[in-house]
């Protein structure tokens, strides 16, 4: 049997909001250590890696490893049925054909169950090695969302240029060009407002706005985002999910023709 309970269903809602624009379906790998998802978008340009540790759940039981293919849009619809303060429990039997979402109101006067059919999926799993990156930026997630949104008005892609002066985001197109520079700011009043730039080597990489604007949907999960970059390799954009895990997005860079 598989059973995972979260007092705050809002966390799971936010996780779904953070992936639903990129993925139509995904396999949820459930084991003793927790729930993991690795899935690429249909164009194979980006990848979502989600990890929810078992010890972050309020109750967790997984008697045997399960691979459950789920429709992200269906799951998202179901989670919209949960009240903001509801507790959520995911439940499946061994060799399941469906998974049940159980929402319970805080004073336990309402219990709602939604059963969702699982889907068979062909999976492409990528082996992503541990990598040390030449530039790691931590910044407020709201600021990153804003930069992606603002620069998207000027072009289809954003160039990230990291130097010892800081990081510069720029975009250009038919209407003109724009750039936004950020310097390290560790004196911010609050930790979540800090900008931390750890640069070993300067770099310049270009990424498609369309995907970046999907990644920033994870902003409500965490006040800070971490961007890890090296020349000519995919960007890693990471948001922590409280004490329970993280969501990492990988995005292939654009290269000059």
């Amino acid at each position: 049997m598989f059973e995972a309970r979260l007092v705050q269903s809002a966390i799971l809602k936010k996780v779904l909001d953070a992936v639903k624009d990129l993925l139509t379906e995904a396999t949820f790998e459930c084991s003793d250590s927790g729930i993991q998802v690795q899935a690429m978008d249909s164009a194979h340009v980006s990848l979502v890696s989600l990890n929810l540790r078992s010890d972050g759940f309020d109750k967790y039981r997984c008697d045997r490893n399960l691979s459950m293919g789920m429709s992200i849009s269906c799951m998202s619809k179901i989670l919209r049925c949960a009240g903001a303060e509801d507790t959520v429990t995911l439940r499946a039997w061994d060799n399941p054909e469906s998974i049940t979402f159980i929402f319970e109101s805080p004073n336990k006067d309402k219990l709602a169950e939604y059963e969702m059919k699982l889907i068979n999926m062909d999976q492409e799993h990528l082996g992503i090695p541990e990598t040390s990156y030449s530039c790691v930026i931590k910044m407020p997630s709201g600021e990153f969302s804003r930069i992606c949104r603002d620069l998207s008005q000027f072009g289809e892609s954003i160039t990230f240029a990291c130097s010892k002066e800081g990081i510069k985001f720029s975009a250009s197109g038919d209407y003109g060009s724009a750039n936004i520079k950020l310097v390290q700011n560790t004196d911010a009043d609050k930790e979540e407002e800090a900008v931390v730039i750890d640069m070993q080597e300067p770099l310049k990489l270009t990424f498609a706005c369309r995907y970046l604007n999907c990644f920033v949907k994870a902003g409500p999960l965490c006040n800070q985002v971490q961007l890890s970059m090296s020349d000519d390799v995919p960007l890693v954009c990471e948001y922590k999910i409280g004490d329970i895990g993280h969501i990492k997005y990988y995005l292939a860079p654009k290269i000059d023709d």
């Binding site: 194979h44 340009v45 799993h125 990528l126 892609s157 270009t206 292939a252 654009k254």
Partner: peptide
């Protein structure tokens, strides 16, 4: 115009 890469060019399928 820069060309969009495929993620599978960077990581092996396992």
């Amino acid at each position: 115009t820069p060309i969009q890469n495929d993620l599978r060019e960077f990581y092996a399928l396992v």
